[in-house]
Design a protein around this nucleic acid. Structure first.
Length: 110
DNA sequence: GGTCTGACTAAAT
DNA sequence: GATTTAGCCAGAC
């Protein structure tokens, strides 16, 4: 059996999963990792590279506490919060308000 | 090819 | 309940 896309193997899956996050919703690294059978650190690693790709709503991915742990890696530390605010997500003190309700389970898409 | 780092998480303290 | 420890996998050096 030959793998069709050895390069894309996980990275493509992660990006597709992130792009599948509905507007106005957020999810966590661990949730995506669990859905893809990977680990949370891997998601963070791929998301770090996502800036060089297109249409990756990385701002919708936060850590399990709903904290915008990756905001510093955006162009501006406030960019992530601004993008979330545009989608109706309230971010206060670098944390998503009512994160538990806004949480989107990647497994629900599968 | 061993070692280090990382946009994480869960468990222990 | 906040802080620390350890574990996890993939990529860079």
């Amino acid at each position: 059996m030959i793998n069709n896309k050895p390069i894309d193997n996980h990275m493509q899956l992660v990006f597709e999963m992130v792009k599948s996050i509905p507007k106005g919703r957020v999810t966590s690294y661990g949730a995506i990792a669990n859905a893809l059978g990977l680990h949370a650190r891997i998601i963070g690693y791929y998301l770090h590279k996502s800036h060089q790709y297109d249409n990756i709503p990385a701002h919708r991915v936060v850590n399990r506490n709903g904290i915008l742990s990756g905001k510093m890696h955006f162009a501006n530390p406030t960019a992530m919060q601004s993008l979330l605010a545009k989608e109706g997500i309230i971010v206060k003190n670098d944390k998503v308000v009512d994160f538990n309700s806004l949480f989107w389970n990647p497994l629900d898409n599968i």
